[in-house]
């Protein structure tokens, strides 16, 4: 397992960082019948051309667009070059900074909590319990349900006066029930709650598969040494789950920081601007205000930010891996 991860890392590393060693390790001598280089390119061609067409070209266009002011109707002749104006405006735009903070709060809370819930569920389900397969499936179901159904349902479940959640909380005689999506203080926590509910099944499943490979003999040894549950979790399980955790951290962060449907459906960014995340703000500037050039600049700044963050995380993890 760790080897596989190391290889994945190797490929993700900047050229020269790791790949050469991996290559050497795998093939000590060049086999006489090695494939011609062109074959590899042929294999990736269909996918590569598609990615070029639908991701790379749009990305280049968006970079160009970000230096312009343009709405589509005026045609390509109507594109007005504005140099760095859009970027200057982004950095002066209080809504941008506010959305950044909201995004960090949202992803910063939702991602770790999803991980924790997913892991706890995985540990609990990795035991011998009746109908375990069905149970695992049950926790995964929210992940596969479409966001519109989820949004509409939770909007009603979290209705401040008549929603099931507050009817339930009301049983305990609480005085001030959370107003959920009808409060600028509670909307983000509510969003986080629904996000965890929807995503935990995914984290759970990935963790479960990682646990299948847990080093069994080590548990035996630990038990003989008289280590408690917690101690053996910390000494054995957790280190072996670290690569999985990093994988989940990255994928969940990328996914959750792009949450759009739920916000558009339930809160429309509000109340106030309490749920206007960067991804929603990007959508708003493009398709509610039709400031295409500006929206492109906002998106690019965000992308560069995420990219830098991931690079940092990757460096940190590599540093750790080297220590091991």
């Amino acid at each position: 397992m760790t080897t596989a991860e190391a290889r994945a890392d190797g490929a993700a590393a900047p050229p020269g960082a790791r790949e050469p060693t991996a290559r050497r390790r795998r093939t000590p001598g060049r086999a006489p019948s090695d494939p011609k280089p062109i074959v590899g390119w042929l294999f990736i061609a269909p996918n590569l051309l598609g990615v070029l067409a639908f991701t790379f070209i749009p990305l280049v266009s968006v970079i160009l667009l970000s230096f312009t002011e343009w709405n589509l109707v005026s045609g390509f002749g109507g594109i007005e070059f504005v140099a760095l104006d859009n970027f200057i405006a982004v950095f002066q735009d209080p809504t941008f900074w506010r959305s950044l903070v909201i995004t960090i709060l949202y992803a910063g809370v939702a991602v770790p909590l999803t991980l924790v819930v997913g892991l706890a569920l995985a540990l609990a389900l990795n035991r011998d319990i009746p109908a375990r397969g069905l149970l695992r499936a049950a926790f995964f179901v929210p992940y596969i349900v479409n966001i519109v159904a989820i949004g509409m349902t939770w909007q009603m479940l979290l209705d401040p006066s008549a929603g099931l959640m507050n009817q339930f909380l009301g049983i305990f005689g609480l005085e001030h029930l959370p107003q959920w999506f009808a409060s600028s203080h509670w909307a983000l926590p509510a969003l986080i709650l629904v996000t965890i509910w929807a995503q935990a099944g995914y984290a759970n499943l990935i963790y479960l598969s990682a646990l299948q490979d847990a080093p069994t003999q080590l548990y035996e040894a630990a038990r003989i040494d008289g280590a408690g549950r917690w101690a053996s979790f910390r000494a054995i399980t957790w280190p072996s789950l670290l690569p999985t955790t990093v994988f989940l951290l990255v994928t969940l962060f990328v996914g959750i920081s792009q949450t759009f449907g739920m916000i558009a459906l339930i809160t429309n960014g509000g109340p106030g601007d309490s749920t206007t995340t960067l991804s929603f703000y990007m959508y708003q500037t493009s398709f509610q205000f039709y400031r295409f050039g500006y929206a492109s600049a906002v998106g690019l700044v965000t992308f560069i930010g995420i990219f830098a963050l991931m690079l940092l995380m990757w460096r940190a993890q590599r540093g750790k891996a080297l220590h091991d």
């Binding site: 490929a11 993700a12 590393a13 900047p14 050229p15 790949e19 990736i44 590569l48 990615v51 991701t55 790379f56 070209i57 749009p58 990305l59 266009s61 968006v62 667009l65 990328v254 920081s257 792009q258 759009f260 960067l278 991804s279 990007m282 959508y283 493009s286 398709f287 295409f292 929206a295 492109s296 998106g299 690019l300 965000t302 992308f303 995420i306 990219f307 991931m310």
Partner: peptide
């Protein structure tokens, strides 16, 4: 290796960024 890195990098592009182009 380079192409694969480029691939991984594109997966970080926020979906909303590509909507307009």
């Amino acid at each position: 290796g380079k192409v694969f890195i480029a691939y991984l990098a594109t997966s970080l592009i926020p979906a909303q960024l590509l909507l307009v182009p």
